[in-house]
């Protein structure tokens, strides 16, 4: 167990520190910077999308339930209107848990 924790800690730190090290000389040019500028949008979406949607061999694209669909729709609509993130999270979570546990 101790080896697992130590190894995992070293691996996650390596991935985070890799390009900070002084001996790494690589510096991204303008094109690479533009490519990398989309990283947070792409990674965050790749994390949340499978929480709500999935693929089924029988039905194709499917979803986690009406509560998820309505909740993320509310979050998406409020975000597009540039409502502050904390309001988006609290409002959509209230709608989601309201549908899930009250209705």
């Amino acid at each position: 167990m101790w080896w697992a924790i130590t190894g995992m800690a070293l691996i996650t730190f390596f991935n985070r520190y890799a390009f900070f090290a002084d001996f790494v000389r690589y510096s991204p040019g303008a094109k690479v910077k533009r490519f990398l500028s989309y990283s947070s949008y792409a990674v965050l979406t790749a994390i949340w999308a499978p929480i709500v949607f999935s693929v089924d061999t029988q039905t194709g694209f499917t979803h986690a339930g009406a509560d998820y669909l309505i909740g993320v729709s509310v979050a998406a609509a409020l975000s597009l209107l540039r409502v502050p993130s904390i309001v988006v999270v609290l409002t959509s979570a209230a709608v989601f848990f309201g549908i899930r546990f009250v209705i």
Partner: peptide
């Protein structure tokens, strides 16, 4: 259904742009 909060937060952080 606690994973919904993750989805809502990440949508809030990306959909504005």
């Amino acid at each position: 259904g606690l994973d919904f909060a993750i989805a809502a937060t990440f949508i809030a952080m990306t959909f504005g742009e």
